[in-house]
């Protein structure tokens, strides 16, 4: 009896163990290790030299880091709002009963998500090249890749293109969870579509919208492939005015300063934590109301 009891107790851990082993070895250990390295100066070979917080200090005083942060913020500001409006509008259209037949087509909007960011960046080079699709269709000659601001707009467009389908799907789910009776009641009361959106649906979906904005902000911080591929070759560009903050991490690895690279990583983590805390408090606030 006792033996089987112990066996029974072990079973769940056995189920858990493959995952935990993988997770500890390939995630937790490297994470802790990278924190230790961030306090040293280490080339990846030879001796690691303890330097304390110097790496963090150096990065926080490095304008390339702040340019990266600024760029990431710019990308976020340029794309988040537009993206949310588009996905929200599309979700609103698709989920309203009048457009029932469209719901079969909603998969189209999710398709760009299946295209890898790398490929998306490559495709969009043809769209925005000097004699590309955009310039031809609108009969203009905008030098998209000659000017940093314009290039940032291109990156934002790619981000909107690739990501709005995701939030669209999430918003559709959110809207179907809004009690249809409330909406019906509002229609009977004679509320216009606009009133319905701003007075009923948006307040009810406030949490999802906030969540979307913050998560999108977090993924902007992690942006890497699109801005780099859109202007150059693979890999991280040397410090330029369009490089995201991840470039500094990748460059530091490529330059063999693992200490610096880890420090950039953990600074990134701190920023993401701050965003997460903001999200949590924001969501809690509305719940109290």
């Amino acid at each position: 009896m006792k033996v089987t009891n112990i066996r029974e107790k072990i079973i769940p851990y056995l189920f858990l163990s493959p995952f935990l082993v993988f997770f500890l070895v390939f995630f937790i250990y490297p994470a802790l290790n990278s924190f230790y390295i961030s306090l040293t100066s280490y080339k990846g070979y030879g001796q690691a030299k303890w330097v304390g917080w110097k790496n963090y200090h150096a990065i926080l005083h490095y304008d390339v880091f702040w340019t990266g942060i600024r760029n990431v913020l710019t990308y976020w500001v340029l794309h988040a709002g537009v993206m949310m409006i588009i996905s929200f509008t599309m979700a609103f259209i698709v989920s309203s009963p009048k457009y029932q037949k469209l719901s079969r087509l909603k998969v189209i909007l999710f398709l760009p998500r299946v295209i890898a960011p790398t490929v998306a960046a490559l495709i969009f080079r043809a769209v925005f090249s000097s004699n590309g699709l955009f310039n031809t269709v609108f009969g203009v000659t905008i030098p998209w890749f000659q000017n940093d601001t314009l290039t940032k707009i291109v990156v934002a467009i790619i981000l909107v293109w690739r990501d709005f389908g995701y939030w669209f799907v999430v918003f559709v789910a959110g809207m179907t969870s809004v009690n249809p009776e409330i909406i019906d009641a509002s229609i009977v009361d004679g509320a216009t579509t606009m009133q319905r959106i701003f007075r009923i649906i948006i307040p009810l979906m406030k949490n999802i919208l906030k969540f979307a904005l913050i998560i999108d902000g977090i993924s902007s911080l992690r942006l890497f492939s699109i801005p780099n591929i859109i202007v150059g070759q693979p890999g991280a560009l040397s410090p330029t005015s369009i490089g995201p903050v991840m470039n500094l991490l990748v460059q530091n690895i490529q330059q063999g300063s693992f200490g610096r690279a880890s420090a950039v990583g953990w600074l990134l983590f701190i920023m993401i934590s701050i965003l997460t805390v903001i999200q949590m408090t924001a969501v809690r606030d509305t719940e109290d109301l």
């Binding site: 995630f27 490297p30 994470a31 290790n33 390295i37 977090i218 690279a261 990583g265 983590f269 993401i272």
Partner: peptide, 19 residues
């Protein structure tokens, strides 16, 4: 485990690389 979701995979790249 859920809390570790907050650590983006990019953060641990240097540690992973050396490992």
């Amino acid at each position: 485990l859920l809390a570790t979701l907050m650590i983006p995979s990019e953060v641990i790249i240097p540690g992973q690389y050396l490992f």
